[in-house]
Every structure is written in C-alpha cells, then in structure tokens.
Design a protein around this nucleic acid. Structure first.
Lengths: 153, 153
DNA sequence: TATTGTTATACTCTATAACTATA
DNA sequence: TATAGTTATAGAGTATAACAATA
C-alpha cells in the first residue's frame, strides 16, 4: 500500500491563525504610527523610555530582546527626529543615558492612544471573558516557554 | 487640574500578546525550516504548489497576498534549489506554469510535519475546546475585517 | 581583559515602479 | 493597450562580528 503524503493544510495550525490576525493588527498599527512618522520598533523604544529619567541602550536591548547594534540604529533615527537624546553616562562613561526630549514626551501619549484604538478595532467586540481567556492562554505560553523578547515586527 | 498622560502599558493590548506568541511560534518554525534550507515564505509557496499541476506566479501572488515581484524572487530561489520548475504557459505564453519538482514533492510532507510539530509544541497543551475557541475568534476577526493575505513573516 | 556602543556587512521580506514580452 | 513576469531601487528589520572607548 502506498503511503499517503498527509500534508496538513496551513489553516490546521493555530499558529497560522494567530500570525494571520497578529500581522494584520501590527500592520494596521504601523499605518497609524506612520502618520506620526514613527515605526513600530521606534514606538517600542519610545514606550520603554517613557516615565524614565535615563536608560542605557544596552538596558533597552535586554528589555526588548534586540541586539545593541539594532538599538544603536533605532536611537540614531529617534535622535535625528529629535525625540530622544543621548548623553554620556555620569559615573561609567561606557553607559549612555537615553531620555525622551520634550517633543518625545509630548508624542508618546498620542501614540499610546493610537495603540489603544488599534486594539479596540480588532478586539473591541470580544466579551471581556473571551478577551481575558485568550490573554491568559498567551501569558501561559510565554511562561511555559520562557519567552522574553518583545516582538516589534 | 493637570491632565494625566494616561499611557497604557504595552501588555494592556491583546494585540501585544498575540504578536508576542505569534512571533515566537513563527521564529521557532523558521529555525526548523532552516535545517531544510527553506524560509517561511518559501514554505508557503511550496505549500501552495503542493497537489497542483501548474499554477501561475500571479495566481500565487493573489492567493497569498504578495506582489508579483516578491513571488518572482521567491521562485528564483526555489528554482535555484531545484524545488520548483518554471515553464512557459501553453496557450498564453505570458503565464508561466509553476510546479514542484520531484525533490519539491518529496520535501513538502516533511516540512508539513515540521509545521505540525511546531504547532504542537506551542499549543498542544491546550484543551480542544480552548483551541477551538481561539481559532473561532481569529476566524471571526478575519471575516469581520475581510483580511485576505497569508502572513509569511 | 571585559563591556558598551558603533559600524560594516549581509540577508530576508516588502513595496513601488520602470521595463520586456506577449496578447 | 493591457497583462504577466522581471528587474532595480529602496527601506525596515534582523543578526554577526570587528572595532574604539572606557573600565
């Protein structure tokens, strides 16, 4: 008897549906951010700096699971947009002090509102219990697998 | 009274948790595929060609929501790996006939098994009802928003 | 010697748009 | 002229690794 190939369809995987929805949610958000000339990766960095006095690039990299090189380029762009300042560290000059500029501080709440609105567009129709159940499942998967990085793309 | 900034944390958004998990699921899958020298985007094209006699690049592009230029480059790589053949169309020579090679046909079931295993690693612990509920929510969001493209990254 | 941040290089994915071959 | 496929260009994101400055 010939062996059947048994190739499961893409839609058989829950990961397929999560990626499908997640990518569209992220894309819709990136379009909203683009109106403010900010990318999703830049938003994540801005959000990390919000409410902080000074954070080192390596600290940001560790928090959001990116390399120092990637953070360096992101901070280049954010500094060029005058949203973030780089200052040499006081005690240990290897460490830089990153901080939001006044323009950056002024911008972040508006971007956060875009994030709220984007989430509501896709998930606002869910019953609170449905929403909480899905969040709990995702948190449990993060915990089980020890996932650490913040996804930016 | 001063207005409070009201910057919601990233974790307040369900989209954050979906992207967090989804990106790790995709990344884990991409690592498994890399052992077979295949990317996720290439896998999606291979999967579309599986079980088909001949499909035009523009048809693939329409199905998975990529541009013809992107498909052209992907097919370049798949042809270089001898997994896919390009033949000129019979009746209308503007249309190409893409098809899996014997090597491509032999490879696809193994890749599908990797996809099954990857999904099980992340979602295998869920109760069938939990899994079905999440899939139903995602399908409903896809339906509500008329989402069409297959996510490949 | 170890660590921070920078830079160079490279690769994937994506999109736009100009280009060709065919119809 | 309209469409299919190709190609060039660009940009975002990512990673690795070599590098300079600092400790």
């Amino acid at each position: 008897m010939p062996k059947p190939p048994k190739v499961s369809p893409l839609e058989a995987h829950l990961g397929y549906w999560l990626r499908f929805v997640s990518n569209h949610v992220s894309h819709a958000f990136s379009v909203k951010l683009a109106a403010c000339d900010v990318t999703v990766a830049e938003w994540v960095v801005l959000r990390e700096l919000h409410g902080e006095d000074a954070v080192a690039p390596s600290e940001i990299a560790a928090r959001i699971g990116m390399t120092r090189g990637a953070i360096s380029k992101l901070v280049d762009r954010l500094a060029a947009k005058a949203l973030v300042t780089r200052r040499p560290g006081r005690d240990d000059r290897r460490y830089q002090s990153l901080a939001l500029t006044a323009a950056g501080r002024a911008l972040v709440p508006g971007l956060a509102a875009l994030a709220d609105r984007n989430d509501a567009e896709f998930f606002g129709h869910l019953k609170p219990a449905e929403r909480a159940a899905i969040e709990a499942v995702m948190r449990e998967i993060v915990r089980r697998h020890g996932l650490r990085t913040v996804p930016t793309n």
